[in-house]
Design a protein around this nucleic acid. Structure first.
Lengths: 151, 151
DNA sequence: GTATGTGCAAAACCTTTGCTATAAA
DNA sequence: TTTATAGCAAAGGTTTTGCACATAC
């Protein structure tokens, strides 16, 4: 089932309405299948339909997050801005290059094990994990040009 | 070497000045040896010296962060507010209880291994790791009273 | 004396919200 | 027709900054 179909059904099931703005945003999300933030999404949407507002983008993102259709992440060290991505089949994590700002996705058995270890060791119930990794990617490590001191 | 001594030297070495406001803030940090945010620190400082401003607290925290004397962390899922703590001998991580808001520190060999695994697997140079864990602590799990639906 | 640091208030930033008009069902 | 949603602009919450004055060195 496509993202748009799934999201449309979720909206309808909860008594929501499939407005033209929401449809446009869903299309953009499905097309991109990448990481995006509210502002980037807003710019794309606004290009196609100048009537779309930033508030609607935020409201739609929150709605999709509540519905469990997108995940909210942080990518930069400062975490000043929220990013989103479609919910993926298996958990994965992100490494952001501080120089070229490329985001590398990866999976790790170790990361997955942490939850279990903590639940066992601390006796807690883990509901949410947030991890960001930052540094210099392989390409940039081998290209010391491109200026800018990092860390 | 005490935190105050170390910080004072760092300030002087970088051509900075040990103002009364900075001295007060350093004292509070050394006393607390805990997690704190800008506002909490500001309130404490302001009690002892009503002339201390929030701006100075922020500036001092940033200075100490740059100097590598305190670490900046996030404890809540939303990351709306920055927390700080003295730089510790060994890396540790934090689990925050969503019900009682207690913060549990822990160490984990697994967490530490992730860096190495990623450096090997992705060929990156890891400069910064940010992790937050949230859920329900053991105590709260066994005390289903206290209302509030969580997640 | 000279630069660095301070307080204040305003700005910056991202996100949310109140209100009225609009449009989906 | 009814009620959810849109747009707008204003407010929210946290952190930063410009500026003139104060102060450590």
């Amino acid at each position: 089932m496509s993202f748009i179909t799934e999201a449309s059904e979720a909206i309808r099931e909860s008594g929501g309405r499939l407005t033209s703005q929401r449809r446009l945003i869903l299309e953009l999300l499905q097309e991109s299948e990448e990481h995006f933030d509210a502002e980037g999404l807003y710019h794309q949407a606004h290009e196609r339909d100048a009537s779309v507002s930033l508030a609607t983008v935020y409201r739609t993102l929150n709605m999709l997050k509540e519905a469990g259709l997108i995940d909210q992440r942080y990518f930069s060290r400062e975490h000043g801005r929220e990013y989103y991505e479609p919910v993926a089949a298996h958990e994965h994590y992100h490494f952001t290059c501080q120089r070229c700002h490329k985001v590398i996705e990866f999976e790790s058995r170790l990361v997955d094990q942490i939850r279990q270890e903590l639940e066992a060791k601390l006796g807690v119930q883990m509901n949410h994990t947030c991890m960001c990794f930052e540094g210099i990617c392989e390409t940039c490590r081998h290209n010391p040009k491109n200026g800018e001191e990092i860390d």
